[in-house]
Design a protein around this nucleic acid. Structure first.
Length: 272
DNA sequence: CCGAACCTGTGT
DNA sequence: ACACAGGTTCGG
């Protein structure tokens, strides 16, 4: 479900409801979603702790608690984190409930691919994938030395954008949208980019992700923010999910192919 | 590199 | 019945 703009929106929409709140109790309904520690420790070690701060790294959401403990959440495809004033009737896909002083934080996940970790700050490197993440695309990390890595990569551009070690936070929707914005074909080999094309790609990454955050994320099917609200960026998609429809820029019908097992949309008219 | 696996649901 | 879905990891 969520890529960087969605996780960032969840973080921002959750912050006013969870920051400074004390966790009275944690109820775990589906132990499989907790990667570590064991189910009893996961609940016991959070009880009584206060949420100090929130952070995002790539598609990971981090809740910094007291005693240097960090709750790390990766929502994968269908995970949701939603705050509610009252618990309401729980759905069959609600796997964790945090009982806060002011209400309830729910973790729901239809496909149960998402994972949660509770670790000490010093153990963050042990969270799968977290330590290997590439630079934050909205930080200062997409400069010249980053772009220079293009020339050494004989891979299709889209698979490079989806590689979280190369740049953190981009997923299937935004990879398609970024390449369309930059006018680059998803199968184009990274090593063949000119300096100008590499700079255009870095700028497209920043612009597309920034606009998606301004639209509070893309809600195609499952995504909602921390208050259960849908995003708006689905109304601004240029190619993703638009196979057979005219490109807004040049009128050429958008094409769908498979690349690395993922549905990939592009405009053959304006992406080379 | 590719497909399979992890899961459940929706759409054709 | 079959394809497909905002992700990642594992095995061949």
């Amino acid at each position: 479900m969520p890529e960087l703009p969605e996780v960032e929106t969840i973080k921002q929409s959750l912050a006013p409801y969870v920051l400074g709140q004390r966790i009275r109790e944690v109820t775990l309904y589906q132990p499989r979603v907790v990667a570590r520690p064991g189910p009893e420790d996961f609940c016991r070690l959070q009880a009584g702790a206060t949420v100090r701060s929130l952070a995002r790294r790539g598609k990971y959401l981090l809740f910094y608690l007291e005693e240097e403990r960090v709750l790390v959440v990766h929502l994968r495809l269908t995970g949701r984190l939603v705050w509610q004033a009252s618990p309401g009737p729980l759905s069959k896909h609600t796997h964790v409930v945090w009982h806060l002083d002011n209400g309830f934080l729910l973790y729901e996940d239809l496909r149960r691919f998402g994972r949660l970790w509770l670790v000490r700050e010093t153990e963050l490197v042990e969270v799968a994938g977290l330590a290997a993440l590439g630079p934050e695309p909205l930080g200062e990390g997409l400069g010249g030395s980053w772009a220079a890595a293009f020339w050494r990569r004989d891979r299709p551009l889209k698979s490079l954008l989806l590689d979280q070690r190369f740049v953190a936070g981009i997923g299937n929707i935004y990879a398609d949208e970024i390449l369309h914005r930059a006018g680059l074909h998803p199968l184009r080999r990274a090593a063949t980019l000119s300096k100008g094309e590499a700079e255009a790609l870095a700028e497209a990454i920043r612009n597309v992700l920034t606009e998606a955050i301004e639209h509070r994320g893309t809600s195609i099917r499952d995504y909602v923010d921390g208050q259960g609200a849908s995003g708006q960026h689905q109304d601004f998609l240029q190619v993703h999910g638009r196979a057979g429809k005219a490109c807004y820029r040049c009128g050429t019908p958008v094409v769908r192919i498979k690349l690395g097992g993922r549905g990939t949309y592009f405009c053959p008219g304006c992406q080379q």
